[in-house]
Amino acid sequence: MNGPRPGPAEAVRIWRSPGLPDLEMMQATQVTRTFPRHSHEGFGVGVIERGGAGLLLSRRERRRR
């Protein structure tokens, strides 16, 4: 079959380690998902393994590739 191949499916997995109950971990494939402007009460640390991301911080757009 010819034509474009489907991209990766969007998926999210969230878990906690019994030894670190206050730490929530997430692994995600988010190809087309967007989020409205929002905030979080806690801190987050992210690692982008492939691709890129854009964010709006203090009304200035930032792009990471």
Rank of each mutant, 00 (worst) to 15 (best):
L57A: 08
R59H: 15
H40N: 05
H40P: 06
R33F: 14
V47F: 06
L56E: 13
W15H: 05
G19F: 12
A11D: 09
A9F: 02
R59V: 12
R60M: 08
G7E: 06
A11M: 09
P18K: 05
R33H: 13
P18W: 03
E61F: 12
E61M: 03
R62P: 08
R5H: 10
R33I: 11
P21T: 10
E61G: 00
L55Q: 00
R13A: 12
V47P: 01
G51P: 00
G19R: 11
R64Q: 11
I14G: 03
L56R: 09
V12I: 08
G19P: 05
R16N: 05
S39C: 09
P8E: 10
E24V: 15
N2G: 07
R65Y: 13
E41Q: 09
E24Y: 14
R64F: 15
G52S: 00
V47Y: 08
P21V: 03
G54W: 13
H38Q: 00
G52W: 08
E61H: 07
R59N: 06
E49S: 07
A53E: 07
G19L: 12
T32K: 04
V47I: 07
L23I: 13
L55R: 06
T29W: 06
A11P: 00
H38A: 02
S17D: 15
M1Y: 09
S58E: 10
P4V: 08
L23C: 12
A53S: 04
G19K: 07
R50C: 04
G54V: 03
L56P: 11
T29G: 04
G46N: 08
G51Y: 00
Q30M: 15
E41K: 09
A11H: 00
R62T: 04
L23E: 14
R5K: 09
L20A: 15
R64H: 14
S58V: 12
R5A: 09
S17Y: 12
N2P: 06
Q27V: 15
G42T: 02
R60D: 14
M26Y: 03
H40K: 06
V31M: 13
G42Y: 01
R13W: 06
M26P: 14
A28E: 07
G7Q: 02
G7T: 08
N2W: 05
G42S: 01
S58M: 12
E49R: 05
M25S: 14
F35W: 11
M26F: 14
T29E: 02
A28G: 04
P6S: 11
